[in-house]
Design a protein around this nucleic acid. Structure first.
Length: 803
RNA sequence: GCUGGUGUGGCGGAAUGGCAGACGCACGGGACUUAAAAUCCCGAGAUGGCAACAUCGUGUGGGUUCGAGUCCCACCACCAGCACCA
């Protein structure tokens, strides 16, 4: 037997798989059930790194397993190509981004093939190709037509380095997701998508999907649902004249009697309206200017001393007590959340307490507890449930029963209502960058904002050599007159195009739908095909996009469902977040930190099968692991032993020596592939191999089944051996069935406990009765039992004597 | 601070409430070899003992149970998300 020449053999199979129809998905397959496996498509930036193996290989193993199980599997791949990497290459090295993407796509697809990934390469898509972005633009047009997209001047995140507006999702932690610099807040004319309107639907998507709890919690956190009461209080001037209405959102209506002041966000528009009644407008303006300079992140994250400014001459009337209390502005109140104003109850909110101390404002306790050193907050009183005080008719009640009654009271009196608030904001959707989808929108002096007709799509991104925004921060497209100047689709007068482009998250917000029908030029995908393939059954990929891409995906799929473009609301049935591969210092492997180990290096040295096995033997799919070559010998050894099995064949059918182990193996690996638990699947294969080695032989049928079981993990070597030994292609085989009754052994080793402590084991035949076992123990004189008070016998599990 | 998750040998990691440490790495011993590498076999949680065996042992402290790594309560540590959200 020649030794295993992985280079030649792996290449041979990779060539064969490239165009193998058996690896391609079949629309409307007459007999096979469908299964859709998705891996988060590649961000086109250069070479793949080991981290990619963490997500792609389990998906590939699942796809191969499901094909064996008789499913019609859709397992596609593509490139997320708009955005930073191509644009930076253009700016820094003058590389045409189209060319960069073309080369980048080729690279990642070639490398995928070298890993042995069985994608259906005939369905490959790329978000920056006009055939694709035509439909991204089409979706935007639908959003616009259905009043889900609007343009508004507002405070938005802006990165001075990248010269572009960013969404909240793109500036998590106050850092630009593109370059890592601090984000500032600027006023801009910005496109927003009404994502907030979809909050409840997104929460429903989260309930429906199968996903790790911590990831679901991160998403719920991001949406930030909060139930409470909104109620009206009036703003009055010094002479008791009502000037304006003001609403306040609170989750703690039980503290309403304890309001001693009210705080508005510095940007609250009521301040201008009240300016004639505010006696210290100079101070107020100075404070507004001061806070405007601080970034929102700075304002929110650094809990320093409370700053603020009183609105002299303005009072708010508490509608429950009719008391007049002073009004302040302070930067801890955010204009974008609730009504941009809060009621302050210093005794029962630590933040209000600190503000009251700084500004010497009186406090009023309305719930029992010690407020001398700080607030008694809801986290405390809702648990200990003390009595209400100083709260009119509610005094003396316990908090938990008073709370709903007080809510009902403000509703009944007509000035309050139940409200749900969300932290999640609308999605700011434009970027002042070149490399993105142009908006299919024109601005006409007569007609205003006018959408292009669908027949005009795609609106092509015009070629240029100048990839930088202008001095005012306008998109590079604004410098291209032939693009900007156009005629209005409505009145045919002169008009100007929108020159911003869409964020790179646009193309990724619907790409799984396009795989279903990648070449359709009549629709984003054929409705019947969408119905056939349905939701993605298993979606693998990193966890870093969980509060961004995945939420956007929920949002767009809901919208497309509502306009009848797709048949389901839930894009994904199951989302598996893969762990990271870290370098030896525990840092994430990535292109930007230049610590990536190339899978090609590993494949070159050890082969693709070994690389696949090693990465997944290091840790579970969802766990992070530190990359190391340490231990890879264990895997090469395993692969070599598999290869040598061909010299150990003796007999044809499954032998009685191996029937139990083989059935166990089939059962275990099947479950593990379903759950992407590749590490224990590998271990199960090793255990079986150990048994074979011990006995010194394997029968033909055993080898046949073993090769199929191992194939999803190590497709090359198993395909080769299958062909050599059986003269057939393993792709035509089906996964072996296991027989539960074969797994149970006739003779078992039963643990014996005395007083719950393990003593020894006894060999007994299966399903022995308690009496049989006790008499066997006695006859063999295994242990001294003494005075047995009670015996617990769990058949085939354990026997426990209490003495 | 809030929320979620995780704590198991020298290391990576296994264990539907029933023999903890599967599988692998590293380690020790042996076989083969002039020798080494490779390969093969054996050993191995800790402590005591020549050994049979005994005691302890899954972050800490309690509890439920005949029996707890697993379930419950409290605490500690680490990781992640959110963070002055009214």
């Amino acid at each position: 037997m020649a030794s295993y020449d992985f280079k030649t053999i792996e290449e041979k199979w990779q060539k064969r798989w490239e165009n193998d129809p058996r690896l391609k998905a079949v629309d409307f397959h007459p007999t096979k059930p469908k299964y859709y496996v998705l891996y988060e498509f590649y961000n086109i930036s250069g070479n793949l790194h080991m981290g990619h193996l963490k997500g792609t290989v389990p998906a590939d193993a699942l796809a191969r397993y499901k094909r064996f199980k008789g499913y019609n599997v859709l397992f596609p791949i593509g490139g997320d190509a708009f955005g930073l990497p191509a644009e930076n290459a253009a700016i820094k090295h003058g590389i045409d981004p189209h060319k960069f993407v073309e080369d980048g796509m080729k690279t990642v697809l070639d490398q995928s093939k070298k890993i042995g990934l069985s994608f259906d390469y005939s369905r490959t898509i790329c978000t920056s190709s006009p055939e694709y972005y035509k439909w991204t633009q089409w979706i935007f047009l639908q959003l616009f037509k259905h009043d889900k997209a609007y343009k508004k001047v507002g405070k938005v995140n802006f990165c001075t380095h990248c010269q572009t507006v960013l969404s909240n999702e793109d500036s998590q932690g106050g850092k630009c997701d593109r370059c890592g610099n601090d984000v500032i807040q600027v006023n801009r004319n910005v496109w927003f998508l009404k994502m907030r309107e979809y909050s409840e639907k997104l929460l429903k998507n989260i309930d429906n999907i199968t996903m790790a709890e911590n990831l679901k919690e991160a998403q719920r956190n991001w949406i930030g649902r909060s139930e409470g009461i909104e109620f009206d209080l009036g703003l009055y001037d010094e002479n008791g004249n009502k000037k304006e209405d003001l609403s306040i959102f609170t989750t703690c209506i039980e503290t309403v009697y304890g309001i001693t002041f009210v705080v508005l966000a510095p940007e609250n528009e009521l301040i201008e309206k009240l300016s004639s009644s505010i006696q210290n407008m100079d101070e107020v303006r100075a404070y507004q200017e001061k806070t405007a300079l601080r970034s929102e992140f700075d304002r929110m994250s650094q809990v320093k001393d409370k700053t603020g400014c009183i609105l002299k001459g303005i009072y708010a009337k508490n509608p429950v007590t009719d008391e007049l209390v002073p009004v302040y502005i302070a930067d801890f109140v955010l204009n974008g959340y609730g009504t941009g104003a809060v009621m302050a109850v210093p005794c029962h909110d630590q933040r209000d307490y600190e503000f009251a101390v700084s500004f010497n404002i009186p406090m009023k306790q309305v719930i029992e507890g010690d407020c001398s050193k700080g607030a008694v907050e809801k986290g405390e009183y809702l648990v200990s449930n003390p009595k209400m005080v100083n709260s009119g008719e509610f005094s003396g009640m316990d908090v938990l029963s008073a709370k709903p009654k007080m809510a009902q009271m403000v509703i009944d009196k007509g000035f309050g209502r139940k409200i749900v608030n969300y932290k999640m904001q609308d999605w700011s959707f434009n970027r002042q960058r070149y490399w993105g989808e142009p908006f299919p929108i024109v601005f006409c002096d007569h007609c205003g904002i006018v959408p292009l007709d669908e027949s005009e799509l795609p609106l092509l991104l015009p070629p240029t050599k100048d990839y930088l925004p202008n001095a005012q921060g306008d998109s590079p497209l604004s410098k291209i007159d032939s693009f900007v100047n156009c005629t209005c689709p409505k009145c045919h007068g002169k008009a100007r195009r929108e020159t911003d482009t869409m964020p790179n998250w646009a193309g990724s917000s619907w790409y799984w739908l396009r795989y279903i029908d990648p070449h359709n030029d009549k629709a984003l995908a054929d409705y019947e095909k969408l119905k056939y393939w349905g939701s993605v059954d298993c979606y693998t990929g990193g966890t870093e996009h969980i509060t961004r891409h995945v939420l956007y995906a929920f949002f767009w799929q809901n919208f497309l469902y509502e306009i009848g473009a797709v048949p389901t609301r839930d894009p994904f049935v199951r989302k598996m977040g893969s762990g990271l591969i870290l370098d030896s210092e525990g840092k994430k492997m990535s292109k930007s930190s230049k610590n990536g180990v190339s899978p090609l290096e590993v494949i070159d040295k050890y082969g693709a099968d070994v690389a696949r096995l090693h990465v997944h033997f290091l840790a579970g799919y969802e766990d992070n692991c530190i990359w190391s070559f340490k231990g890879i010998e264990g895997i090469t050894n395993f692969v070599d032993r598999v290869w040598k099995l061909q010299d150990m064949i003796k007999g044809d059918d499954v032998s009685k020596e191996h029937i139990v182990e083989l059935n166990k193996l089939i059962k275990k690996t099947g479950e593990d592939y379903e759950n992407l638990k590749l590490n224990t699947a590998i271990s199960a294969c090793m255990i079986f191999l150990k048994k074979i080695k011990e006995d010194g032989f394997i029968t033909r049928e055993e080898l046949r089944q073993f090769l199929i079981v191992l194939n999803p993990l190590a497709p090359h070597i198993t395909s080769e051996m299958y062909e050599m030994v059986f003269g057939q292609d393993i792709l035509d085989q089906s996964y072996p069935e296991y027989d539960e009754s074969k797994i149970v052994e006739d003779e078992i080793s039963l643990p014996i406990q005395v007083n719950g402590k393990f003593r020894t084991t006894i060999k007994v035949s299966r399903d022995s009765t308690q009496d049989e076992i006790v008499s066997q123990i006695k006859s063999k004189n295994l242990i001294e039992l003494g005075n047995v008070k009670k015996t617990i016998y769990v058949p085939n599990k354990i026997i426990n004597f209490i003495v």
